[in-house]
Design a protein around this nucleic acid. Structure first.
Lengths: 263, 263
DNA sequence: CGGAATGTTGATATGCCTCAACTAAAGTGG
DNA sequence: CCACTTTAGTTGAGGCATATCAACATTCCG
């Protein structure tokens, strides 16, 4: 592991379970928390005391199902996962998407039963952190718990924005807003290259996210492609005209509560 | 103050600032937290050490505006408040409604800038609790912070359900689901009398909640009245046929994560 | 009692869903 | 590596649900 990565975790080497993989996994989380929170040396020590188990997910595979009572929390290390409600008729409503550094089921820390499911959007690798250890760490370091709490609050802000998006905006605006959010968050986490990032989502899933039929998804996507040079192909999202896309989608990144805007 | 109310706060008298009003305000919060969390004697002591200021809101009055940086958190003592996004065109998108015992802006504890506003739905009285004191209490009693954290996580679950409601359900089902949630939560908090509770919301606001035009709100409401004996008049919601209404709205209360179902 | 806010109803237009046929791409087994 | 199967994406036609607009009724409040 090189000096730069070492600096990222504040110079603390992983003396507890000292190995490169563990440090790398934690760095993903630490970098994420630092997008909005300040972490002290003691908080980092506490984080480095956590154990974890890696798990690889195939595209579409479920990580947690509605009704589960998980004893571990997931941290996305690479790839993308999505949260969704399973409806009585078997259809899905996607609620949010999560990329490296996100904890897509942090809510399960304090709510026993899952009211929604989490699945992989494209292949993904995740780290599983035991609730017991996390909560012990929270007892010892309240500021660390506040950072993760803040993370869950930003999640909630994203949900609120989704309510507005799917209730009060036209179809093209909805889709534009979603794309803006995904690219913006990817850039904030250093996961984008220029104005493109990995979004291995299908048209069907897009429809189940934005509350539109697949036919409309297709036509709306073509509209965005023509007018704003948006491409969504081969699992990659490319935004040609960011300014105009953000305008169409009424995208105001304030709700993401990041300390420094990436765009 | 009578013996019963005294038991509610675990036999602890308000020795810190000992007065009946303070105890009553805190009991509202304590009762709420106990719907989903266990609080120890020390947690209650800590809560009773909090100071607060009361504030009366007229119907429609804003408590917090989008962009504010509040230093206090609100606790609803009576009446109802709503959270909403203000859109560029001046319209509103209501996000959630909160009744006695709820903390409608608890998120502001760890997120500086408000990404949405909060206003009174009908006249309401609220207690304002300083962030500084709350966070000091969280440092001393992590389990207390977990209880409020859990509260914010249940809020998030309600937001998720709203995404699904406004994206994947028919208009009658949406409205039915909202009514079910409001009555269910009111009953859980002991704020309902039988199958009715106070919901002083107008048709216009209903439309801005459910993503439908006011004309459709009106017609849908009449449909529910005819088929399920739902009344919404004079600020009161009355549900005649709960079973059928819950079925129409696909209402499954699991997402509210209450320890004991009130229906 | 007058005025404003809120609720009610009908007519019209349109955006989106549904259905269905088809094409392209990706994955599979011989 | 190709033929086959399956999945994902594309396009058009038709009908319906809901937004929009406009007129009117009712309630609320000063």
């Amino acid at each position: 592991m090189d000096a730069r990565a070492d600096r990222t975790s504040c110079g603390i080497r992983s003396h507890s379970k000292g190995n490169a993989v563990l440090t790398k996994v934690l760095d993903v989380l630490i970098r994420k928390l630092r997008e909005h929170s300040r972490l002290g040396r003691d908080d980092l020590m506490e984080l480095h005391g956590l154990s974890h188990k890696m798990r690889q997910l195939r595209s579409g595979e479920d990580l947690i199902r509605q009704g589960d009572l998980p004893g571990v929390s997931a941290l996305v290390v690479s790839g993308m996962v999505g949260r969704y409600h399973l409806l009585p008729n078997g259809k899905r409503q996607y609620l949010s998407f999560h990329m490296a550094g996100d904890m897509p089921d942090s809510q399960a820390l304090f709510i026993e039963r899952m009211d929604h499911a989490v699945c992989a959007i494209g292949p993904a690798s995740i780290a599983l952190l035991p609730h017991r250890e996390l909560i012990r760490a929270f007892h010892r370091r309240p500021p660390l718990s506040f950072a993760i709490w803040r993370e869950t609050l930003i999640d909630a802000a994203i949900f609120r924005e989704a309510i507005t998006n799917n209730s009060a905006r036209t179809m093209p605006a909805r889709m534009a807003h979603l794309f803006c959010e995904l690219l913006y968050r990817a850039r904030a986490s250093g996961l984008a290259t220029g104005n493109s990032c990995q979004v291995p989502i299908g048209l069907n899933q897009l429809g189940e996210t934005l509350g539109m039929s697949i036919a409309t998804v297709n036509r709306t996507l073509q509209e965005l492609r023509a007018a704003y040079a948006v491409e969504l192909r081969g699992g990659e999202l490319i935004v040609g005209n960011w300014r105009k896309l953000a305008e169409l989608g009424q995208f105001d990144p304030g709700y993401l509560h990041l300390k420094k805007p990436p765009m």
